[in-house]
């Protein structure tokens, strides 16, 4: 091997080595890289009660109830499960029924998610209002696909739970 070929091999090995190391690390810490839990995670009780977590899902149409002042109650769902949420505070402009949101808070003893922050998560689709109206007539729903990545896997096994301690 010439000197140049040696350097070429070294650079290739460096990139490959770092790539493999990163892939292994991110596989091991996959759930730490997740920004929110899905309703499926919560229903499967993969999350310790009382811990401060983030919950992401779609605001289910017809569930939004406004109480006194800034109090709101609504239900958040992914493609499979749903969780009731209670919140008191300012909602982002994009908040509405059918919208994707990420709420920070705790699961109460009654199973209701008590949020102290609600952020809107919009999707990657952009279109003029006229086009959207036509699409709404055809389908009218936001996709739940954005929330179809449960942190614990789709069907969390009981064996998964001790690792949450």
């Amino acid at each position: 091997m010439t000197k140049r070929q040696q350097r070429m091999t070294a650079v290739a090995a460096l990139v490959l080595g770092i790539g493999v190391a990163a892939a292994l690390a991110f596989t091991a810490f996959r759930k730490n890289m997740m920004y929110f839990y899905t309703p499926t995670d919560l229903v499967a009780q993969a999350v310790p009660a009382g811990a401060k977590i983030r919950l992401g899902g779609l605001v289910v149409a017809g569930t939004l109830q406004r109480g006194e002042g800034l109090d709101v109650r609504f239900t958040v769902a992914d493609c499979e499960q749903s969780v009731p949420v209670r919140y008191s505070g300012i909602l982002p402009d994009l908040f509405r029924e059918g919208q994707g949101i990420v709420a920070t808070g705790r699961v109460g003893p009654d199973g209701v998610f008590m949020a102290d922050e609600v952020l809107a998560k919009h999707d990657e689709n952009y279109m003029p209002p006229e086009l959207a109206e036509k699409l709404v007539a055809a389908d009218g729903r936001h996709s739940c696909a954005e929330f179809s990545r449960p942190v614990m896997g789709r069907r969390p096994a009981i064996a998964d739970r001790p690792s949450q301690s």
């Binding site: 920004y35 919009h122 990657e124 952009y126 929330f147």
Partner: peptide, 30 residues
Amino acid sequence: IVKYSVEWWNSLHQGSTIMKLGKPSIALEM
């Protein structure tokens, strides 16, 4: 990692609109 972060993990940031394979998720005039 930056490019595929929105596919590999769930995030507040939405998925890619144009920098992806397949049909872009944006109306033509936009």
